[in-house]
């Protein structure tokens, strides 16, 4: 005869188990952030943020990497936003079911699952070598643009879908054309949702390493043009940590990275919720 646990008891055991496992997950997250901050906050100072990097990162600050991150990310967003939002508009406003829609959706879904090292390989062979753009902000930016494209498409698609159909009917019934309706009613209404996707894209671009190290390179100077090679914060942090150049500087850089990521996620979260509260 086997020992049987009653349904009430198993319910309690399951609840406790789930609670413990969920707590562990949350604690791990907080632990990571707190641990990095604990060791890194002390490194932060105006000099650290505005000083040039000296002796491969052993001395000085991270100013060139901040500029590099900013430029590469901005370039990526500038390319990915029109492509992503345009794709989403086309998907929602111009197709209903059908083969074209399935192909485009499939493309975005698959692209979303491609690992960053593959983007790195692709960007390296295509932008850096075949298009002869070299290790540069442009190559890095274009590679990241392709990488964040699915995020922008999917978020914008959801946001545009959430615009009530009646808004479009009103606009059409007032004699608005399709383009008028999209530009004057659909896009302004879905703007917070679209921005959420772009901001999430920024977050991914800022934290990315594998896809940029082989496309933007790891030069330490302050970039002089879009064709300059540059070292983003994430790459700089990777090199500091892996090559053991300076642990304190690594913690400092990681702290800056995490602060950016937290801020980006927070903004995206707030925007999304304002949007959801209004339209769902």
């Amino acid at each position: 005869m086997t020992f049987r646990i009653g349904p009430r008891t198993s319910q309690i055991i399951a609840y406790i188990l789930l609670l413990v496992m969920t707590s562990i997950t949350v604690i791990v997250l907080f632990f990571i952030i707190v641990y990095i901050f604990n060791h890194g906050i002390g490194q932060l100072s105006l000099e650290f943020l505005t000083d040039r990097t000296r002796e491969m990162g052993k001395e000085g600050g991270i100013f060139p990497s901040i500029i590099g991150t900013l430029l590469v990310t901005m370039f990526a967003i500038a390319v990915a936003t029109p492509l992503g939002v345009g794709s989403a508009v086309y998907l929602v406003e111009y197709t209903r079911g059908g083969l074209i829609r399935r192909i485009i959706s499939f493309g975005a879904d698959c692209l979303a699952g491609v690992p960053s090292i593959i983007f790195g390989l692709f960007g390296f062979i295509f932008f850096v070598i075949k298009l002869n753009l070299g290790w540069s902000i442009i190559s890095g930016g274009l590679t990241l643009a392709v990488m964040i494209l699915p995020t922008v498409i999917r978020t914008a698609e959801e946001a545009i879908k959430a615009v009530p159909h009646t808004y479009r009917e009103i606009s059409y019934s007032l004699g608005g054309g399709k383009l008028d309706t999209i530009v004057k009613v659909v896009l302004p209404t879905s703007l917070p949702g679209i921005l959420t996707g772009i901001i999430l894209g920024i977050g991914r671009a800022v934290g990315e390493t594998a896809a940029v190290i082989f496309t933007a390179g790891s030069a330490l100077g302050i970039p002089t043009s879009l064709f300059s090679s540059t070292r983003t914060l994430a790459v700089h942090f990777y090199i500091l940590a892996r090559e053991g150049i300076s642990m304190p500087k690594a913690y400092g850089t990681a702290t800056v990275l995490i602060i950016i990521i937290l801020a980006v996620n927070f903004i995206a979260y707030r925007l999304m919720h304002r949007f959801i509260a209004r339209y769902y």
Binding site: Y167, I170, Y172, S173, L174, G177, T189
Partner: peptide, 28 residues
């Protein structure tokens, strides 16, 4: 559609001010 207006069962106001709602049609 400008010459033949349509009013719906449920009033749907576009996001934005009263003024913006009324001026939307003419501006198109």
């Amino acid at each position: 559609r400008r010459r033949v207006g349509l009013i719906f069962a449920t009033p749907v106001v576009l996001p934005g001010s009263v003024y913006k709602n009324i001026s939307y049609g003419p501006k198109l």
